[in-house]
Simulated scan of single mutants.
Amino acid sequence: MDELGVADGGQPEGLRPGGEGGGARPHRGTASGGVARGELRPGTDCEAAGREILAVMDGLQIQWVLAPASVDMPARLRGFLDRLLRDLSPA
């Protein structure tokens, strides 16, 4: 396991069954937990939403590196997340 708690399998120790966290609360603080609690639309593709968030963050970081004065990263990310949450929220 490395200094970040990631074991050889690439999954953080606390999330692996039998790991330190025992995988006991797999939905706490996750998008799939939001679906289970009715906070997100049923059928939400949580993996795809997570990938979109990471892609936007990567793109914003590249823009910020290239032109830091022209990119308000927190505001742009907040705007994206607000739009995504509106789209994924139940009607």
Rank of each mutant, 00 (worst) to 15 (best):
E3R: 10
L4T: 06
G5L: 09
G5Q: 09
G5I: 13
G5W: 08
V6C: 11
V6P: 02
V6S: 13
D8E: 03
Q11G: 05
P12D: 14
E13Q: 07
G14E: 15
L15W: 12
R16G: 02
G18C: 09
G19P: 02
G19D: 10
G21L: 12
G23C: 12
R25I: 08
P26C: 13
P26D: 15
R28W: 14
G29W: 12
T30S: 15
A31T: 04
S32M: 09
S32L: 13
V35I: 12
A36W: 08
A36V: 14
E39H: 12
E39G: 04
L40H: 08
R41V: 03
R41H: 03
C46V: 14
E47P: 01
E47S: 06
R51I: 00
E52G: 01
I53F: 07
M57K: 14
M57V: 05
D58Q: 11
D58K: 15
D58T: 06
G59L: 02
G59N: 02
G59T: 00
Q61A: 14
Q61W: 00
Q63I: 00
V65N: 14
A69N: 07
A69M: 07
S70R: 11
V71L: 08
V71E: 09
M73H: 04
P74A: 06
A75T: 02
R76Q: 15
L77R: 04
G79S: 12
F80S: 02
R83S: 15
L84I: 01
D87F: 11
D87Q: 10
L88H: 01
P90F: 06
